[in-house]
Amino acid sequence: MVWSTADVPDQRGRTALVTGASGGLGLETARVLARRGARVILACRDVERGIAAAARVGGMAEVVRLDLGSLASVRQAAERVRGRVDRLDLLVNNAGVMFPAYRHTRDGFEPHFGVNHLGHFALTGLLLPLLRDVPGARVVTVSSLAHRLAARAPRAGDAHADGGHRSVAAYSRSKLANLMFARELHRRLADSGAAAVSVAAHPGLSRTGLWHAGAPVWLRPVSAGALRRLAQDPAEAALPALRAATDPLVPGGGHLGPAGLSECRGGAVPARSSRASRDELARIRLWELSQDLTGVRYARRGAERFAAGTAR
């Protein structure tokens, strides 16, 4: 039986934060969660767009400013969220960039790595005290089919690379980092006895704004043809993340994607992943690098409590 939004359980009494919720997959995810009764915090870089999105979401939707390309903004957003709520049930790490116009984030990072991975790594760590002991709490990190194009995770030398803003390789490595982070986070949560779990999802091919404007010239005709033939609407593409967030039968450490046609479109089911994403030592190295670069340190495996320390 195909899983749909009709299968999303009642979310009344639950609080969710969705990054990049002013449009595309994030907006669709927030709309469904709110429709099922959740209080939803839309974490958006553009507050005006976020307010307009909150009006479309309805229910108990609210906005917090979050620029994942600025670690200062990430810390400020986390502080605001901690001031508003005493617990989070869902954190959906959805926001991302693809071929942005700028060469580096405000902290000097290659933008795909800095926004797609490091920003979410820091945000999750800073919000984890609101999640870790909440029964049924979930962190969902949205990866991509493109993770399979990356032979390896980002390394220290990639962090400040110049020119990666137009690089398919840099984008693919950032999405591999998303998947590796989701799996390593779950392992560490499980080892510490936390109630929360971590799950990954990818949307397949979706008609969202990420494909517009900045793609390398050689890729544009390829992506245009693929989008015409294979892409699905954001409402359909959001299903894997929604199922990962709300279906209690999806196990921690899982990875969901579309069911049909090379995982480009279709219902939400367990997805395939690359060998690189399953490399445990590489995941640990990426984790340690991410802590060093962001200044947000998670407790070590086996610690009595799994929590993020204050940023350096």
Rank of each mutant, 00 (worst) to 15 (best):
P129A: 03
A276H: 04
V8R: 08
G59K: 08
S4M: 02
A182R: 03
G83D: 02
L239D: 04
A244T: 05
R132L: 01
S273H: 13
R166S: 13
R283E: 02
T246D: 12
A238W: 11
G58N: 03
R14S: 06
G164A: 14
A43R: 08
G295A: 09
L27T: 06
V168P: 07
S198R: 07
R65M: 12
D86N: 15
T5V: 15
R132T: 06
C44W: 05
D10A: 10
G266Y: 08
R272M: 06
A241L: 10
V85D: 01
S70K: 07
D292Q: 15
H120Q: 14
M98E: 07
V57P: 08
D89G: 08
F306Y: 15
A61Y: 05
S277K: 06
A276C: 04
T141L: 06
P216M: 01
L293S: 09
D158I: 02
P258S: 13
G267I: 04
G164C: 14
V217F: 09
R80T: 12
R14Q: 13
T105S: 11
L293N: 08
V197R: 15
G108R: 04
G50K: 08
R132N: 06
S143A: 15
S22H: 06
V57S: 01
M98W: 08
G209M: 04
L71E: 04
A146S: 13
V64E: 14
R285V: 01
V296Q: 12
E280W: 04
